[in-house]
Design a protein around this nucleic acid. Sequence first.
DNA 1: ACCTCACTTGAATGACTGCTCAAATGTTCA
DNA 2: TGAACATTTGAGCAGTCATTCAAGTGAGGT
Lengths: 117, 117
Amino acid sequence: MANDVCDEFRCSPDKVAHWQGKLPPLKDVAATFKVLADETRTSILYLLAHEELCVCDIAAILDSSVSNISHHLRLLRSQRLVKYRRQGKMVFYSLDDEHVLALIDQAFIHVQHKDQL
Amino acid sequence: MANDVCDEFRCSPDKVAHWQGKLPPLKDVAATFKVLADETRTSILYLLAHEELCVCDIAAILDSSVSNISHHLRLLRSQRLVKYRRQGKMVFYSLDDEHVLALIDQAFIHVQHKDQL
DNA sequence: ACCTCACTTGAATGACTGCTCAAATGTTCA
DNA sequence: TGAACATTTGAGCAGTCATTCAAGTGAGGT
């Protein structure tokens, strides 16, 4: 006889019932965050936000291998976050979706808010 | 003698030199995205954005185990994304940082923008 | 044609992550 | 005190991920 039951009938049946099938498709949202959840990739996006760069440039700036950067760019392409352009032997990458910048900025705000505690 | 060298002196030395030590600390930003990069956790945040819930409620709604949800809540707490309040035997969780909602909304926008291609 | 170079791709490996089970905490009630 | 219950915690396991290495494309120059 408690106000907040959590036995047999599982917690608050009303709340549970209220949410049945009402959750939006957060799978894709999580997938988007998954691509951003890597320092190398956020760095690439940060760089491309300022200027168009070739794979070799990015690798040199981030002090990583060309192969590794190429793998990451492949992931970013799969989520339509970056686009590329061939010029001779080189491939230049740039941002495909400006929304991503807003995402990164927002994350920055959170980090600052978290640290000032 | 090409305009866009990418040998010996590594691509465009000017661009590379320009970015030396100028990258902001994106490690924390990536860490924030890492916490959001899981459907269960984004679902938890989405739920808590609407109402305060106990662990048992969340587990029932998301059709997962209490133990699993508790593990995820621990992660969310470590990033100061949720806060908790004890009431008797139960622990009620709620959002600690409203900024996160803006992040999730922004990710939603990107997903929609990505799909309409 | 051939060689060179920028980049991509695939396999292999070590590290990390999400989930589950079992045991431990902490709170309420008898 | 002791039993019952909501939650936490730790260990273990399977799957995923980031990085490296080696081989494969594709374009330019000779």
